[in-house]
Amino acid sequence: MYTKHRERTPEGEELDYFDGDFLMEIVESLGYKVHYDKRERFFHIDLEEVGNFRFGFHFAFERGRLELIWVVYDNCKAILGSPFASYAKWLISRDYIILKPVISSYDDFEKVMKIAFEMYEDFKQAFLKISEEQ
């Protein structure tokens, strides 16, 4: 069972400008080493290697919208690397839409990232459990 979260940041109240160093401090306070890819304009945490797999988490922040991307490599082959919103379409329904979180403050960013990293950690554990059963 899932709960729909309907609270959205009102239009015009998005955090348009952000201090990338401060965003990185927030992510590091959550326990992850983060880097910024200036050329591609996204943030990413250090890859975590577990057996043959490497897991990563990327995020991009533009016009107040936060795009979350989980990545998985099997040895050197990328096997997952899509925006989080696309997983609902694959797992629930083609018509199911998860909107990008709209961030209005650094506090919002921290709250969303805390939840996003909890989901990411749950995903990694589920992925590894399923891969062991294969």
Rank of each mutant, 00 (worst) to 15 (best):
S29E: 03
A78S: 12
E132N: 11
R39K: 15
K100W: 13
F84H: 06
I45D: 00
V50M: 03
I69L: 01
I45R: 01
Y87C: 05
F117N: 00
L80K: 10
E110Q: 13
W90A: 12
F109D: 06
H58L: 09
A126F: 11
I98D: 03
F109P: 10
L128R: 02
E121K: 07
T3Q: 12
F55W: 03
K77Q: 15
G51K: 01
K33N: 03
G56D: 02
F55R: 01
T3W: 08
I26Y: 01
R65F: 14
S104W: 00
I130E: 14
V72Y: 02
E13L: 12
I103L: 13
E25A: 06
K111N: 14
I130Q: 13
Y87Q: 01
M1R: 12
H35M: 05
Y96H: 11
L68E: 02
D21G: 10
I130K: 15
H5N: 12
Y36I: 14
H5T: 04
A85D: 14
F84G: 03
G64S: 05
G12V: 13
A60L: 05
H58C: 05
E67F: 11
S93P: 05
E11Y: 14
E67L: 07
E14V: 10
K100L: 03
E121C: 02
K111P: 01
L30Q: 03
V112G: 02
K77V: 15
H44D: 00
P10H: 08
F22E: 11
H44V: 04
F42L: 07
F53E: 02
K111G: 05
D122I: 13
F22Y: 15
F109H: 05
K77G: 13
F57R: 00
Q125Y: 10
V112C: 07
G64P: 07
P83V: 11
S131R: 14
R41G: 00
K89F: 08
D74I: 08
S82I: 10
I45S: 00
I45F: 00
A116M: 06
E7Y: 13
F22N: 12
L99P: 13
P101I: 06
L68P: 04
K33C: 04
G20L: 06
M1V: 12
R54G: 00
Y87G: 07
Y17T: 08
I97H: 11
F43I: 00
A85E: 15
I92S: 14
E11D: 11
S131E: 12
S86G: 03
Y36P: 07
P101D: 09
D16N: 14
G64V: 04
K129G: 06
K114E: 13
E110D: 01
G12S: 06
G12L: 09
C76N: 14
A60N: 10
A60V: 04
P101H: 12
I69H: 03
Y32S: 02
I79Q: 01
H44R: 09
I98V: 12
I79N: 01
V34N: 01
Y32M: 09
A78M: 15
P101T: 11
Y36V: 09
F109V: 02
L23M: 10
E40P: 01
H44P: 01
F59P: 00
I115E: 03
R94E: 15
F22H: 14
I98T: 07
E25T: 04
Y73I: 06
K114L: 15
D122Y: 14
G56N: 07
